[in-house]
Design a protein around this nucleic acid. Structure first.
Length: 355
DNA sequence: AATGCGTGGTT
DNA sequence: TAACCAAGCAT
């Protein structure tokens, strides 16, 4: 593909973007100057997360912490609480680290270069390029899942993901224009989200259909090719619903690293792959000696790399464990509970066995 | 380089 | 319905 053809792709896509760009809470209007804080916050939230899901979280964060300086002054537990339900919780921990770095080491201003941005916690190659392009209109070439797909089709790249990622980044970079690189990156992402979709792309409505090698060959819907994924195993655990005399329920704060790091959960047995827990071996992990009763039913939850099956045992009692967190149901809102914990809470509260 | 890391919508 | 997939990063 020569420079002339690339120029036409850029011009056609930008013309389409100017008429059909999506209106999004974090997106500056035509002629407005983007706020790097909003661009950064949205890009972190949008990592592996849909636009529809992010919307309410983005608005809540902006209302509560209008500037990076305000966010930098927050406690981690506050941030985890506001992030609960959004998933990939290391993003929330790194969000606060990054805000503190920007406020403390950069005078409250985000670096304007990819290299400067890349050095910050939670900002990888995609996000660094996206912020440089969108917030500072630098000729960077962010390549997310949308742009991988659009690029694979435009150039009819038939090699399998993820091996072909580097080649797709190289090809995408050849398109990046010197003028309006931020709009161009967003135009590619809008195209991937609304027209050049994964399953059944709407090629008839595509503004760059005339330039698309995959559409020409009738193989757009098949690209990019992917190797089949591994089956997800099932892990099982028993959770302990311990209710104190005043109605408060026992929770623990998970360690900062790893799965659901920094979030609160009721205590449980280890999460194990394979057979279900027997009564005796499960109760050996109980947080306190008590009259434990098994609740009816199972809580199921899907994680990225395993299915989770939970049963719940309930009892009245106390513990003097130093890391205990006690919360009454009306105060659960003050905890940072992942969605799987909310499912367990609802299951226990809906069950009439205990109370 | 491959794996661990959440959740909800779509097909 | 179960699989697929989403504005990826850290290790």
């Amino acid at each position: 593909m020569n420079a002339d053809q690339r120029g036409r792709i850029v011009a056609d896509l930008l013309a389409h973007y100017d008429r059909h760009r999506r209106v999004l809470p974090w997106r500056a209007g035509p002629g407005e100057t983007p706020d790097p804080y909003r661009v950064w916050l949205s890009e972190i939230m949008l990592q592996q997360t849909t636009v529809a899901t992010v919307g309410p979280y983005f608005r809540a964060f902006i209302e509560r912490w209008p500037t990076v300086g305000a966010l930098a002054a927050a406690d981690q537990d506050e941030v985890m609480n506001a992030w609960q339900g959004l998933g990939y919780y290391s993003r929330a921990r790194n969000l606060l680290k990054c805000a503190k770095a920007v406020a403390g080491e950069h005078g409250g201003r985000f670096p304007e270069t990819e290299a400067g941005l890349l050095a910050l916690p939670g900002i990888g190659p995609y996000t660094a390029a996206a912020i440089a392009a969108i917030a500072f209109d630098r000729p960077a070439s962010p390549v997310d899942g949308n742009i991988e797909r659009v690029t694979a089709r435009l150039f009819a790249v038939e090699d399998e993901m993820p091996g072909v990622k580097q080649e797709l980044r190289r090809l995408a970079a050849t398109l990046t224009p010197d003028r309006r690189p931020g709009d161009f990156a967003q135009a590619l992402m809008d195209l991937g989200a609304t027209i050049c979709t994964p399953r059944s792309p709407a090629c008839s409505r595509c503004p760059i259909r005339a330039h698309c090698a995959a559409a020409e060959r009738g193989i757009a819907a098949e690209l990019p090719r992917r190797a089949p994924k591994k089956a997800r195993p099932t892990r099982r655990a028993v959770f302990f619903w311990l209710v104190r005399g005043d109605g408060a329920v026992l929770f623990e704060r998970r360690p900062d690293r790893g799965l659901l790091g920094g979030m609160a959960m009721p205590p449980s047995t280890p999460w194990r792959e394979g057979e279900a827990w027997g009564e005796g071996e499960a109760l050996s992990h109980a947080p306190a000696p008590a009259q434990w009763t098994e609740l009816n039913g199972v809580v199921r939850h899907g994680f990225t790399h395993f299915h989770f099956e939970v049963t719940v045992w309930a009892a009245e009692g106390e513990t003097d464990a130093p890391d205990a967190i006690w919360a009454r149901p009306e105060d659960f809102g003050s905890l940072a509970l992942p969605t799987v914990a909310k499912k367990i809470c609802r299951h226990a509260l809906d069950d009439g066995t205990l109370l």
